[in-house]
Design a binder for these strands. Structure first.
Lengths: 195, 195
DNA sequence: CGGGCAGATTAACCTATGTTAATAAATGAA
DNA sequence: TTCATTTATTAACATAGGTTAATCTGCCCG
């Protein structure tokens, strides 16, 4: 089993993963390598997988009312990414997922997910806690987004995610923060002049 | 067992709840009645319960940078509400929860939650699906919030939650949507003049 | 039934961010 | 290396929404 994944499972589940489980898990997933700009998922298709990023990076997005890209999530190594609504319901996905760099992912389909979770309680727990945490931080981010200005959201983002700052183009970060790239440039300039 | 709760469990878990489980569940929770404006939770305390609203309504909020109230969630009958980060970690809560009307809730503490979930697989599943759905719609709402204007967010909210519109004061809806009450008034006026 | 208070509206003015457009800088492919 | 394309910056102008402050409405409670 991949080391990043093992660490993730052990960290979130709070339990250590037996060698046996690790082998069993590996049978449920497969690996795929993608080029930069390749799509892991295209909006409108059904999302049949959840993806664990082994190396590289990607992001999910949707088309807003005007047809512009609205970034939903970034995923570097060690992150899971998918369109969960589509994955769990079987409906068409609203998000697309695109690679920002040459990327390796583990893929797990729904049948495998269900089987793995019922076969291994540690996994059921792992995924529950993972989603719980994601929900909690989403709720908090939402509250911050509706109450704070773009400058504050940007500085907080930069502080929390220095790794993202290195590897993700500014115009995508701007979209994620809900502002135009030009506005982000302006904000960065203002921040720079303050020091 | 309360009828609303039974329906919620059966709906989200996709299974029917045995009489036995229902009785067992009831032993894990207790009921509380609160006045309008009473607090279910005060920011800074540890959040020891999750609350299921039996009747009445409440909302969770935090104080933003300027000390103003930022609404996080509304809960009418049939909704769960809590500060999950605090509930699961034991840390101090960042949210407060206040009743909008005279309200009856079921309360469940963490030990009961853990026991109930391990004793009854249907509950483990129920809560997992509940949080999953909450996460999915949160993510979608976040994307909409960062890409759309206040007017669109308001009309969408009004369409999706006509029940909320009846019972929740406008200034709290404004806060939830991330705008000032005055701006919401202005937006409503514009919308009215369009028809 | 009447005074006080919470909630909603209005209006005038202000500012952060959007928009458009042009340029510059970085990246990548031939 | 050079050209083409993508990404970032800048500036001028437009606008949605914030701010302040005053007024209005309704309703709770004494």
């Amino acid at each position: 089993m991949n080391d990043l994944l093992r660490k993730s499972i052990e960290q979130y589940s709070g339990q250590s993963l037996s060698e046996e489980c690790a082998l069993q898990f590996d049978a449920f997933v497969f690996e795929k390598t993608l080029d930069k700009k390749a799509l892991l998922l295209e909006a409108g298709q059904s999302c049949n997988y959840i993806f664990f990023v082994l190396s590289g990076s990607c992001y999910s997005y949707l088309a807003d009312r005007k047809g512009d890209t609205q970034v939903v999530q970034f995923a570097l190594e060690g992150y899971w990414i998918s369109d969960l609504a589509s994955f769990f319901s079987g409906n068409k996905s609203t998000y697309s997922i695109e690679c920002l760099e040459p990327t390796k992912v583990l893929m797990m389909n729904k049948a495998a997910f269900e089987q793995a979770c019922s076969a291994m309680p540690i996994l059921e727990r792992y995924f529950r806690v993972l989603i719980q945490n994601a929900y909690v931080s989403m709720q908090y981010r939402m509250a911050k987004t509706t109450s704070e200005e773009a400058e504050d959201r940007y500085t907080e983002f930069a502080k929390r995610h220095p790794d993202f700052m290195q590897r993700i183009p500014q115009y995508l970060i701007a979209s994620y923060l809900g502002i135009q790239p030009q506005s982000l440039s302006r904000i960065r300039k203002q921040l720079a002049s303050k020091h």
